[in-house]
Design a protein around this nucleic acid. Structure first.
Lengths: 269, 269
DNA sequence: AAGTGGTCTAGACCACCGC
DNA sequence: CGGTGGTCTAGACCACTTT
């Protein structure tokens, strides 16, 4: 069934049943709006995700098969597959040929995303505060030059910030950016995350390479982070690239291990 | 053009040219084998990846547009898109609507995958050696029970291993598995990685939640790892799920930070 | 206006799984 | 064997970017 120009939504009732084998099959209530600019596959994916997070679709439940779901939604099977694939990629669903699609038996963590620490803290409701320790031109050493794809010795912008939540120091952030990429003031950086500022000037970050490790705090780091020298710190270095594949930012960050860790979800492809 | 039952490969010449704008466009040499059981999109993806890694397709190069590439390969556009999407997901290519597809300006790191440390070390050519410190039944405490989805106090299998490369201690691995999932011997674990053994018994791992942090070594850890007490260690806890969404393994690992770090590639979706 | 990727359709055949 | 997801086709129209 195709709605074509019909402006009404497609509505389907919720039905849950058992197959002959006794496994629970869930036929979610779904309604897509064909007048919305939001892609149909994305609407479907969001509704399925909402059902899972609301506990309507409980872990271990088998999802209705793709063909049937497509029929009920008035969508083609490829579109339904695209929606399900989106959730599989994010670790909420698991598919197996010849068997079906099931809800994963796990609490779902928000994976590490291409966001700044500032955004992460905001999202977690933990008011980030930033002190700008340094903001200005610097000479690219070999490492920075290689990561940013500029000649060694070229002038770049260096930013050093101390980030707190409440009054507790959390991390020491050092970033390098190509010169002339963006005009920044210390005030900007105090109020906003670096990635937020970059997005605001039309930079679209797409890919980042990260390395996560650990080491003891230097005396200077310890002083700034309100710790003792040698205390274990979590380190992260990251190079981020935009939608043209050009290097935008190279950063080396250290976090107080007692107050910060990385969570991520891996999905077999 | 469709080859149908034709057993010959589709061959296309390599052509590189410049558009009016002067940007380099690369038309890769591609050849798909329709008699192979390997999916067409995957064959194409592998050839594009090979071209990139071989430096034929250099960073910043713009890839031929999808329609043209599809024509030259004798494939449909959705199939070509699937191939390109595969590489975009892995961080080798970047796409932008209205612009095109470009090779990312970065050295490509192999992202963290759903593999064991044993496999990683093997792949890196750094001969892993394993000592089994413990292998046997244990009682699930609250944490383990929650992660594995069993009742608190239930019997599970606990494995403790020390992993070395050459003679250098590298990591201390503690894993919990549901009872009766797999029959393991210390010999198995000395010779093979845990994930390899699981795969061998038909377990298909699909999803894992990981947390990465840091802390100082305890006295016991320091002794086993040939370090001093309090030295910074990198920690990773992971819960892995199979293709039915059931929890298979919960592990808490510590690594010598001086000899190990995690590398990963993030892709904006 | 021209060129690009983004979305979507309505089918088709196949491989794999469990009964 | 029937049911499931995996792959593939040959189009179509649209949104966005650049010229």
């Amino acid at each position: 069934m195709t709605l074509g120009g019909n402006k009404l939504s497609t509505r389907t009732a919720v039905r849950s049943s058992r197959t002959r084998g006794g496994r629970r099959v869930y036929r979610p209530r779904v309604a897509v709006d064909r007048t919305s600019p939001v892609p149909l596959y994305y609407q479907l994916a969001q509704q399925l995700e909402a059902a899972i997070r609301a506990g309507e679709l409980t872990p271990g439940t088998r999802l209705e098969n793709e063909v049937e779901l497509a029929d009920r939604c008035g969508l083609s099977r490829p579109t339904v597959r695209q929606a399900i694939q989106h959730l599989v990629d994010r670790g909420l669903l698991v598919r197996k040929r010849g068997v079906g699609t099931q809800v994963v038996q796990s609490e779902i963590r928000r994976p590490i995303e291409l966001t700044s620490l500032h955004d992460d803290l905001l999202a977690a409701g933990r008011e980030p505060r930033t002190s700008v320790l340094e903001l200005g031109p610097a000479t690219a050493d070999e490492r920075v030059a290689k990561e940013l794809g500029v000649p060694a010795g070229a002038e770049v912008v260096r930013i050093r910030r101390l980030r707190r939540t409440g009054d507790e120091p959390l991390a020491l952030l050092t970033n390098y950016l190509p010169r002339d990429l963006i005009a920044l003031t210390a005030d900007d950086l105090t109020e906003h995350g670096l990635y937020e500022l970059l997005r605001g000037t039309g930079v679209n970050l797409r890919i980042a390479n990260q390395t996560i490790g650990a080491r003891g705090a230097t005396a200077a780091e310890a002083r700034l982070l309100d710790e003792r020298r040698g205390v274990p710190l979590l380190t992260m270095t990251r190079t981020a690239y935009d939608d043209k594949g050009a290097a935008i930012e190279y950063g080396t960050h250290v976090y107080r291990a007692s107050r910060y860790s990385f969570a991520l979800t891996l999905v077999e492809r």
